[in-house]
C-alpha cells in the first residue's frame, strides 16, 4: 500500500476515534470525571444496532452500500446508548457523594456491568453485521487506496455528526450553556443556568456520539463485548493529546491518534529503510515499531504529551 492508502485508512479509523473522543471530552469537562465506562457505551451502541438491524432487515434500498435498515439501526444504537447513559447518571452518579476520583472508580464498575450484561446475552465471540462486505472502490485502486463505500459512509456520517455538534455548541442556547458550564460550573449556576439539565444533555450527546462510534467500529472491524474497552485507552490518548475539556482539541487529538494508529505499518517501513546505529538499537526500534504495537505507540505518545504539555495541545495553559 502507498502512503495515500494508509492515510485513507487513517481517515476512516480517525472518524471513529473522533466520535468517541468528543463524547469523552464533553463528559470530562462538564460532569468533571474521567468516564471509564465510555468505551463500553460504544459497545452498547454497536450491539443495539446489531439487534435492531437483525429485526428490521434491509428495508429495500441502499445508500453507499448500506441498506436503509442500517441507518435505522444506527439511530437505535445512538438512542439506546444515550438512554443508558442518562439512566446511569440518574441512578448511579447523581446520588453519589464522592469526589471525582470516586466517580472515576465507580465508572469502572459501571463499565464492567455494561460489558458483563452484553457478554451474558451475546457470548464473548466476535460477530459481524449481516451486511455483504464490499470490494474496494475501483477508481481509487490505481492510487493504492483501498477503501470501500462503507468506509466512505463512516467518514461522511462522522463529518455530519461533528459539524452538527459544532453548530450546536456555537449557535444554540444549549451549546452556550454547555460551554459556560465547562468553563466554570459555579459561575454558570449562579447565572441561572439549570446545570443539572445541561449535564443530562451532555450525557445524551456524549453517549449518543459514542454509540454512533461503536456502530461504525462494528462496521469497520467486528463486534465483541471487549471492543469498546479495548478502544477506550486509545480514545483517552486522543482526549489527553487534544487537551481535556476542549471539544475541538479532542477532535484534533482523535484525528492524530487515529492516523498514527493506521500509519504504523508505514512507520515501520520507514524505520526499516533508514540506517540506525548501533545495530542493537536498530533491532529494538524495528521490533517495537510494528503493527502489534500500534496501540502501545498511541499510549506512549499520550504519556509523552502529558509530560511535556500536561494540558494537551489545545488545553489552556493554567488549570
Amino acid at each position: 500500500m502507498t502512503v495515500l492508502g494508509y492515510l485513507a485508512n487513517g481517515l476512516v479509523f480517525s472518524s471513529i476515534i473522533v466520535l468517541g473522543s468528543i463524547g469523552l471530552s464533553l463528559v470530562y469537562s462538564i460532569a468533571d470525571f474521567a468516564n471509564f465506562a465510555h468505551g463500553d457505551t460504544m459497545t452498547i451502541g454497536a450491539y443495539t444496532s446489531l439487534v435492531t438491524f437483525g429485526a428490521v432487515g434491509g428495508l429495500g434500498g441502499a445508500v453507499l452500500g448500506l441498506p436503509y435498515g442500517f441507518f435505522v439501526a444506527l439511530l437505535a444504537g445512538i438512542a439506546v446508548a444515550a438512554v443508558v447513559a442518562v439512566g446511569t447518571e440518574k441512578l448511579v452518579y447523581e446520588p453519589l457523594d464522592v469526589d471525582s476520583i470516586g466517580l472515576l472508580i465507580t465508572s469502572i464498575g459501571i463499565a464492567f456491568i455494561y460489558r458483563a450484561v452484553i457478554q451474558i446475552r451475546f457470548g464473548s465471540d466476535f460477530t459481524r453485521f449481516d451486511i455483504q462486505p464490499l470490494r474496494p472502490i475501483e477508481a481509487l485502486l490505481p492510487y493504492g487506496v483501498r477503501v470501500t463505500l462503507h468506509d466512505v459512509a463512516i467518514v461522511a456520517s462522522a463529518v455530519a455528526l461533528v459539524v452538527g455538534l459544532h453548530v450546536l455548541l456555537q449557535y444554540t442556547d444549549l451549546g452556550r450553556k454547555m460551554r459556560a458550564m465547562a468553563d466554570n460550573p459555579d459561575l454558570a449556576r449562579v447565572s441561572g443556568i439549570r446545570t443539572r439539565r445541561v449535564k443530562l444533555w451532555t450525557w445524551v450527546i456524549g453517549a449518543g456520539l459514542a454509540g454512533a462510534g461503536g456502530v461504525f467500529l462494528g462496521l469497520f472491524n467486528q463486534l465483541s463485548p471487549r471492543m469498546g474497552f479495548n478502544l477506550l485507552l486509545v480514545i483517552f490518548a486522543a482526549v489527553i493529546l487534544g487537551g481535556i475539556g476542549s471539544v475541538y482539541g479532542a477532535m484534533a487529538g482523535g484525528f492524530l491518534i487515529g492516523m498514527i494508529n493506521q500509519l504504523t505499518p508505514f512507520f515501520s517501513a520507514v524505520v526499516e529503510a533508514i540506517p540506525i546505529w548501533p545495530g542493537w538499537l536498530a533491532a529494538v526500534v524495528r521490533s517495537l515499531v510494528s503493527i502489534e504495537y500500534a496501540n502501545a505507540i498511541a499510549f506512549v505518545i499520550m504519556v509523552l504529551v502529558l509530560l511535556i504539555r500536561p494540558n494537551g495541545i489545545a488545553g489552556e495553559d493554567a488549570t
Binding site: L96, I105, T106, A111, F112, I113, R115, A116
Partner: peptide, 21 residues
C-alpha cells in the same frame, strides 16, 4: 449455567458501584 467470566465481571462491577454508593 451462566458463563462464569461475565458473571464474575458483573459481580465485581456491582460491588464497586455498591461500595461507592
Amino acid at each position: 449455567p451462566i458463563d462464569p467470566a461475565p458473571l464474575r465481571l458483573l459481580l465485581i462491577g456491582v460491588v464497586i458501584v455498591a461500595v461507592m454508593r
